[in-house]
Design a protein around this nucleic acid. Structure first.
Length: 572
RNA sequence: GGGCCUGUAGCUCAGUUGGUUAGAGCAGAGCGCUCAUAACGCUUUGGUCGCAGGUUCGAGUCCUGCCGGGCCUACCA
């Protein structure tokens, strides 16, 4: 089985916060690393989502042409993602030529299959800004409650749904200009409504999907008037120009596709970008995406926050199915709730919470990876607090895992040498068998949870595996045995040192950097997954190692308080 | 307004198709160990499972109502 994995693609307008990370890229990376470790061929793709009004405005604010702004922000996000250990096979860009071509191609196919309608509607145009304004970029006084900061889509004060034309004294949220007019403009609509039955049957067939995923999909399918057709074009400069395949689309000159149409297609285009970047052929990427070209044995899994679910369960599948071509449809959608920050929401726009760059400034990635994954908001929204973070890091990483490695390597150095000690083979075999008997059921449980993408449960089980190391040392007490029977103590140490390698291998999906450090310290590159007790014999007698530096440092109260204070307000 | 999710020990969470005395980690208490990042191991105290009804031989689990928290509601992405 080959595994295709995509993470929801992060929007280009700024650096993402930890809430964004834990809902998409991080669990996707966890799964990708695990599946690779289990010997599967994996294609893990992500990209930046670069089109749309917010990107244009962010570029304007930064005083840069939007293309330059996106290119820069793409590099920034790529660097930070790398810092967090994201093992993307490719980190692409939705503004790539490949995506432009594919997006236009899909639009052409959809038109060919009668799934595109041309609809003329009314849209607010701002003369001062020289652009059409999305509903939420129009502000004015709410006709319902009189709040003067109401947006064109909804009044934040009284929560009433609004139409921009409902607003009293409307103005541009960008410039404040009141020189607005309503113009007729033609757009393409994706006729999703014609495929409701097909989509519902498809969703119904996914018995093992998270409730969060299917319930959101069903809600959109059947709520109110049911699934509505959706505009897939916009009056903007920055985006994929509207074309019918390679042909011009009469009447759509100067318009672009809506970001939510081209962004999921980037999942596919990203594979094409990967091929170009790595000297691969078209066939090399199509074997992941075309079931007529080798993708039959591919399992495709998507990771995303719950806000992304409607587009991935409905709109994008309409694009795929509606093309009437054998493109790979998603097999499993893992969705997440939101992570809150210390009593409120993380917010990009308000600068509240911890952002990815800041997180890496204060601690290595694995500290964050461990906490975020072991507290992933799978069943409900979860909350980050500094106390909880400190407690988890100190207890799980420093005390249970880090200190285990420290105590056994230092004991070995002190009583034997910095190498795996020699011991009678039967004694080693006996210790190995006993230790493996404790580990085997936990490793099996870990595999089961990881395969099911049960992130929290996987973390709990991994922690239980680490605890086995300390239990083993406590029960066998080599420091006592060594006083009367050094050979028996040597056998215990021999096996314990091998346990470090095993820990590194099974832990690597969660904490890849620390795992690499553990492997380096043990002077090994044997990443083979533990299948039986031979996993505890990878390092043989006289195999040298280095006593590691502190693998995970503890967070003291003073430091924690300092961070809590520093991150209490807005980011700089 | 409508819909979905959620409420289990001081804290963070597990609890499979309803089935005996409701579990884990952290925090608290006691004991042990001394190799180790004052770390580790063992034992242990904490729960009317949000509230009130109902179905059932039996409800944390199913139904109804109420209360609290969260999210979504289609032109931000």
């Amino acid at each position: 089985m080959r595994v295709l994995i995509t993470s929801a693609i992060p929007y280009i307008n700024g650096i993402k916060h930890l809430g964004n990370l834990v809902g998409s890229q991080l669990p996707a990376d966890l799964y990708a690393r695990f599946m690779r470790a289990r010997g599967h061929e994996v294609m893990f793709l992500c990209a930046t989502d670069e089109h749309g009004t917010p990107a244009e405005l962010a570029a304007t604010k930064a005083g840069k042409p939007v293309a330059d702004f996106c290119a820069e922000m793409h590099e920034v996000q790529a660097t930070i993602a790398k810092g967090f250990g994201m093992s993307f096979d490719h980190f692409g860009r939705s503004s790539s030529p490949q995506n432009r071509e594919l997006t236009q191609y899909f639009a052409g196919k959809l038109a060919e299959n009668d799934l595109i309608a041309e609809v003329t509607g009314k849209q607010v145009y701002s003369n001062a800004d020289g652009r059409y304004l999305p509903d939420r970029y129009i502000e004015g006084t709410c006709p319902n409650c009189g709040y003067d900061g109401a947006r064109g889509d909804q009044c934040e004060n009284c929560t009433k749904q609004l139409d921009p034309t409902d607003l009293l004294e409307p103005r541009s949220a960008i410039s404040g200009s009141t020189d607005l007019e309503v113009r007729d403009t033609k757009h393409l609509h994706l006729r999703q409504s014609t495929m409701v039955d097909q989509l519902e049957a498809w969703i119904d067939s996914k018995k093992d999907w998270p409730t969060l995923t299917t319930s959101i999909a069903r809600k959109w399918l059947r709520d109110g008037d049911g699934l509505q057709d959706r505009g897939i074009t916009r009056d903007l400069d920055w985006g994929v120009p509207v074309k019918n395949g390679t042909e011009d689309w009469p009447g759509m000159e100067g318009k672009v596709f809506y970001v939510w149409f081209d962004a999921p297609i980037e999942y596919i285009a990203c594979a094409a970008e990967w091929a170009e970047a790595n000297g691969k052929s078209e066939a090399d990427w199509q074997r992941w995406w075309r079931t007529d070209k080798g993708a039959d044995d591919v399992k495709y899994v998507q990771f995303m926050g719950k806000d992304n679910v409607p587009f991935h369960t409905l709109s994008f599948p309409v694009t795929i199915l509606g093309s009437n071509e054998p493109w790979k449809l998603v097999d499993y959608i893992k969705s997440f709730n939101f992570l809150n920050y210390d009593g409120g929401q993380f917010s990009t726009s308000k600068g509240r919470g911890i952002f990815m760059d800041q997180a890496l400034e204060i601690l290595p990635a694995d500290y964050w990876r461990w906490w975020l994954l072991s507290h992933a908001p799978e069943n409900s929204d979860s909350e980050f607090t500094w106390e909880n973070f400190q407690s988890s890091v100190n207890k799980d990483l420093a005390n249970v895992l880090g200190n285990f490695i420290s105590r056994i390597t230092k004991f070995c150095r002190s009583k034997f040498s910095e190498a795996v000690p020699a011991a009678p083979l039967d004694a080693i075999a006996q210790e190995r068998a006993g230790l493996w008997a404790s580990l085997a059921p936990l490793i099996k449980e870990y595999e089961t949870h990881m395969e099911a993408m049960e992130v929290r449960k996987s973390a709990n089980t991994l922690r239980a595996i680490w605890v086995v190391g300390n239990e083993y040392l406590q029960n066998t007490a080599p420091w006592t045995v060594n006083k009367t029977d050094p050979e028996a103590a040597a056998a215990i140490v021999h096996v314990s040192l091998n346990l470090i390698r095993l820990f590194a291998v099974v832990s690597s999906p969660f904490i890849p950097h620390a795992a690499q450090q553990m492997m380096d310290d043990m002077h090994t590159d044997d990443w083979s997954w533990p299948e039986d007790e031979s996993a505890l014999s990878a390092l043989s007698t006289d195999h040298a190692f280095t006593v590691p530096e502190v693998l995970f440092a503890k967070i003291d109260d003073e430091t924690r308080e300092g961070w809590a204070e520093r991150f209490a307000g807005k980011r700089d």
